[in-house]
Nucleic acid binder design. Structure first.
Lengths: 366, 366
DNA sequence: AGGAACGTTGACAGCGCTACCAGCAACGAC
DNA sequence: GTCGTTGCTGGTAGCGCTGTCAACGTTCCT
């Protein structure tokens, strides 16, 4: 009667086919394109598979079909809260689909990214999600030559490799500074850490806004390549104060820094917002419950990850999205730390066409 | 001359072998067990592979060898800072090895975990990392029947499936409470959210310490199944205060809650630590720079992930570790929020044999 | 000298699945 | 009645690699 089981005791497609009384190839089709089968055979295969507890062998499928069901994801950091939100969105969207996520950490190195990209591409992924728009020329070439859909996330920029979803860090920073102008602040400092391309663009946005207002001074900018942290926020703020004692506001490149600045103000008994206003970036959960509550620029991180993965999967399955570039926008969430004489949380400035979709965030925390 | 290239233009092992003037199988051996080759052939194959830019086809390898080079990781949450530290350790350790990480999120559901486990096992992973010790009976059975090494992380408990690395949440909580006793606190509340098995064990540790001191009262415990957040910390603390206005300390099941409690105290103008002491759990980075600085129980999360993956990989490669169960310990980091009349940061109570290894953490932040 | 032992190499036969194309029935158009 | 056409099904032939085992040359022993 021939071999019934693989050595390992696993059920193979052939057994399912036999039980269902069809050929292996028909059984195979059931899993990839059930519509192509007659209803009778479809149900027969379905129940046979269920009865035997069949689980397809992905390696065999990949080998035979010359493509894997893996979505490669390249992100610069696993620690950063921002990316964990994005990742959660990606994982959530991939769940239930037949694709699995292969994650790699570039550690903010575009050379490392290039290396990982080469590795990924060699395995013929079904799709790819890469962070940002600042790849090496080599990486860029590989991406363009890749025969799978690709989504660039976190940023919006000119000429996407394929699809793109994010927002303008430049505009978001400008909006934050504009908000501070509105509140009558003039001597606005910038505090930034890590200085990856996105933080750099926030700095650029800050600089352009300040220059437009004729208020830019180099000494108002304090940055470091060091990874960000709350403690670092305090330290950079201390530097900034020493350079410019007349400071009346700080725009922080992220919320950790903002929290550090807040604590440092507390330590130095600087009144927030009366003496100094604070604005952060990302709107992490704690911003809303700090004392005073902290103004921040809200970004749609979870949604970004989720949408990126969803778009990618649709594209893999042959349904290209209407628009390849999606701007998810941002919103300045005004809170006590920058609004002195106003009530708490009166959202105002937001950016991008899609910004009106931004409600009730963050979605599904856990 | 036969086919030289696969359809996709990829270099195959056969081409490498041909260029090196050896048989394919010899070339294959070069990648799996170079020592088995003569030096001459080894160098020939090596340079041929490099010249052609050969990248092995993992699917073919998996199919032929009946096992994958994938390490499955099951964690309950992607959002939680705690797990992102662990994950970073796991990814760091796997880098450079030939194993890749396949991550799945159980969302704190042991049923979901069981489902994912079944999925993983069907693909014959090289190894498995699972969170905690509270699997379903079915999961437990699958794990024991699995023919790959397995590491349980985050906790220490009786009868490991295979290997185990973590610390005692019960003892850590007891140590935190003991510290508060030392500081003369008596009415110590407990604030907990999510209440997964590990938080539950912290609660148990708290209860046992309080009972031992004859100080336990049910109304001192406020918990919720809701996911944790800073805001929630404030809310739970508010409840707690309403129940017990005479409260003189709060032990929070994690640092987010502790920060929320701190902010709530600030809002209510409750002096910390003079009126109420606060102790958190995990010792996230911000604890050291809050005002006042916040006492917390430091745990070795990055190290845990890193060691788990390292042990696992060694076990896969046939080198079982000397001890299958590793207690990474904890340490109560005493800071201003609980030590009123002391200087800042005077570490004291720690747990587990391995605790002396705990220095200079957190390692390699990014 | 014969042969055992070792280290090294290669031939063969799949791993479980799917791409490709052929075949077959049923149907309609001319 | 013949010829497409459509819808479904199956046979064949691999996908690229490795497990198994046999064969080879060399060395060392008896």
């Amino acid at each position: 009667m021939g071999r019934k089981r693989t050595k390992s005791g696993k059920i193979r497609l052939a057994e399912v086919a036999e039980l269902a009384g069809v050929s292996p190839i028909t059984a195979s089709r059931f899993f990839r394109n059930p519509e192509a089968l007659s209803v009778a055979k479809r149900t027969r295969v379905e129940s046979a598979a269920k009865e035997l507890g069949y689980v397809p062998n992905l390696a065999a499928r990949a080998l035979a079909s010359q493509r894997t069901e893996v979505i490669g994801v390249l992100i610069p950091s696993l620690t950063n809260n921002v990316f964990s939100d994005v990742l959660r969105g990606i994982y959530d969207a991939s769940e239930g689909s037949r694709y699995s996520i292969q994650l790699s950490n570039t550690r903010y190195s575009i050379l490392q990214e290039e290396k990982l990209l080469r590795l990924f591409l060699a395995q013929k992924p079904a799709g790819l999600i890469v962070t940002g728009i600042d790849q090496t020329a080599e990486s860029r070439a590989m991406l363009e030559a890749a025969d799978c859909p690709i989504v660039q996330i976190m940023e919006i920029g000119p000429d996407p490799v394929d699809m793109m979803i994010g927002f303008s860090h430049h505009d978001a920073a400008r909006a934050a500074v504009a908000h501070l102008f509105e509140q009558g602040r003039r001597k606005i400092g910038f505090v930034g850490a890590r200085m990856d391309p996105r933080v750099q663009r926030r700095l650029d946005g800050y600089v352009s806004a300040m220059k437009d207002a004729g208020l830019f001074e180099q000494r108002l900018v304090v940055t470091t390549a060091t990874p960000t942290s709350v403690t670092l926020g305090g330290a950079l703020f201390t530097d900034l104060l020493a350079r410019e004692p007349g400071l009346d506001a700080v725009f922080c490149a992220n919320d950790d820094l903002a929290l550090g600045v807040l604590f440092e103000c507390r330590r130095r008994e600087i009144a927030v917002p009366d003496q100094i206003a604070i604005v952060g970036f990302n709107d992490l959960e704690f911003m809303a419950s700090a004392v005073p509550t902290l103004t921040s620029v809200r970004t749609n991180r979870y949604e970004m990850g989720r949408t990126a993965a969803t778009m990618l999967i649709e594209a893999i399955d042959g349904r290209r999205p209407e628009q390849a570039v999606l701007d998810l926008g941002f919103k300045v969430i005004e809170r006590q730390s920058s609004t002195s004489r106003h009530s708490d949380s009166r959202p105002s400035i937001s950016g991008a066409a899609a910004a009106n979709k931004m409600v009730a965030l963050p979605s599904s925390h856990d």
